[in-house]
Amino acid sequence: MRLRHPGGTPLHLSYCTNVHAAEDLDGIIDQLDAYAVPIRARLGTDVLGLGLWLAAPVAAALAADPALRARLRRELTARGLEVVTLNGFPYRSFQDPVVKHAVYRPDWTTRERLTYTLDLALVLADLLPDDAACGSVSTLPLAWREPWDAARADLAARRLDRLSAGLAAVESATGRVIRVGFEPEPGCVVETTAQAVARLAGLDGDRLGVCLDLAHLACAWEDPAAALKELGRAGLRVVKVQLSAALESADPDALRPYAEPRFLHQTRNPEGGAADDLDEAFDRRLPGPWRVHYHVPLHVTPPAPLATTVPVMRAALAELVGGPRPLCDHFDVETYTWGVLPPALRPETPAQLAAGIAAELDFARAELHDLGVTS
């Protein structure tokens, strides 16, 4: 959706399609009709933004064939849809029965990760609306924390230099600016704001920055205002913001229904206690309260003693858009866990999922309106 900051800057609000399983072009187009078109109708907006997820094989096919890119853009335009951001974190198979640590492979020590990300940048340059200032691609925070050593860090640094050069080449060829944001996440080489500064400061600040996922920020028990100030002092641009909420509970036992086999649910407490998944947190009897990397629908208030980190999201938005100029212009609602929610919350049909995503987007739009952003 197109929004406008009080200072006049256009803002883009979208939803991330990594919640859908399609990994070929025909399947992606089918999902536009099954989900995006009904969502746009429910929201009553002329244009709906998508944070499109393209698995590596379809990204490679699109990057290799301008006619395919033109077809995808036509299909989007015909449905009142637009794309200014891509999610380049999951490489493929993100809705498989078991994902867990596989989502972090291949990482930024590999040629495959570099190739995939530059494929996405080239595709996005052709999908961008003519009046969009730039495009963004989110990616993983270098790698899972193990194994990681000086040799792997050096290899990743060389890949990032090639990424910067590749993005410059895309800009030279297409006239479109594409930026890549590294997404701090619990358990990874870059988990916290301090680690982002340590690992990423000094990179090409025009093209490389941070994708700020607000559920991840909350799981790190970070203060949004302090985090954004630290990123600003280091010269790290917030390329993209993922609007997401994590689970929270002072009574860890209330979280047992959310332990499930597909995704990793890193768990943290405010004293620095950490577990890489909910099952591990239960086994270790990690003291509460817990925040859990489990993206829950923004508009849903779970029964006590459960809560969500929407207050952290709200505080972050106040910092991001509350000043005379926004600190970011791409906002993507990223709840990919609809299919693994407890049965009482889980949508059973495409129509129910579309209704849930529309409700999230409406919630996010209302939060931005409360800060003076207009439609």
Score class of each variant (00 low, 15 high):
Asp96Gly: 12
Val210Asn: 07
Thr301Asp: 15
Pro303Cys: 10
Leu114Trp: 10
Lys100Tyr: 10
Leu361Cys: 06
Leu163Ser: 05
Phe331Cys: 02
Leu50Lys: 01
Ala156Glu: 06
Ala196Asp: 10
Val340Asn: 08
Leu231Asp: 03
Leu320Phe: 07
Glu319Trp: 04
Trp53Met: 05
Leu361Tyr: 03
Ala366Cys: 08
Asp161Met: 05
Arg284Val: 09
Gly88Tyr: 02
Pro326Ile: 10
Pro97Asp: 15
Thr337Cys: 12
Val137Tyr: 06
Val99Gln: 13
Trp144Val: 01
Val239Lys: 09
Leu128Lys: 01
Trp221Ile: 12
Leu52Ser: 06
Gly322Ala: 11
Ala307His: 11
Leu142His: 07
Arg233Asp: 06
Thr174Val: 11
Arg111Gln: 13
Trp53Ser: 10
Arg2Asn: 09
Leu217Ser: 05
Arg159Gly: 03
His12Lys: 02
Leu13Phe: 08
Val19Gly: 01
Ala61Met: 01
Ala168Thr: 14
Ala67Lys: 01
Ala64Ile: 02
Pro324Gln: 05
Tyr91Arg: 02
Leu203Ala: 11
Ala315Leu: 10
Asp130Leu: 14
Glu183His: 08
Leu114Ser: 10
Thr115Gln: 10
Arg365Phe: 07
Leu341Ala: 06
Arg285Gly: 15
Asp332Val: 14
Pro10His: 10
Ala60Gly: 04
Thr193Val: 15
Gly339Val: 07
Ile28Cys: 00
Ala250Met: 03
Lys229His: 15
Leu43Ile: 07
Asp26Lys: 02
Asp253Lys: 09
Asn269Ser: 10
Thr115Tyr: 00
Asp149Asn: 15
Asp251Asn: 10
Ala169Gly: 10
His295Pro: 14
Asp206Glu: 15
Glu280Ser: 11
Gly44Tyr: 00
Asp251Trp: 01
Ala220Cys: 15
Arg346Pro: 00
Trp144His: 13
Thr374Phe: 12
Ala234Thr: 02
Cys188Glu: 05
His299Thr: 06
Pro347Phe: 11
Leu13Gln: 02
Ala151Arg: 14
Ala366Phe: 08
Thr85Pro: 01
Asp277Met: 03
Phe282Gln: 09
Gly235Val: 06
Val47Trp: 12
Ile357Tyr: 13
Ala318Gly: 14
Leu54His: 04
Leu140Ser: 06
Arg69Gly: 12
Leu122Ser: 11
Val103Glu: 03
Leu371Arg: 15
Lys240Cys: 12
Gly288Glu: 04
Trp53Val: 02
Glu367Arg: 13
Ala259Trp: 03
Gly51Val: 07
Pro342Ser: 10
Leu122Asn: 07
Gly135Cys: 06
Ala245Lys: 10
Ala67Leu: 04
Glu248Trp: 09
Glu191His: 11
Pro6Arg: 06
Gly27Ala: 06
Val340Ile: 15
Gly44Thr: 03
Leu155Asp: 03
Met313Leu: 15
Arg262Val: 09
Ala215Pro: 08
Gly187Lys: 08
His299Glu: 08
Pro141Cys: 11
Pro252Cys: 00
Asp206Ile: 03
Val300Trp: 15
Gly8His: 11
Pro303Met: 05
Leu264Arg: 14
Asp131Tyr: 03
Pro261Trp: 09
Leu68Asn: 00
Met313Pro: 04
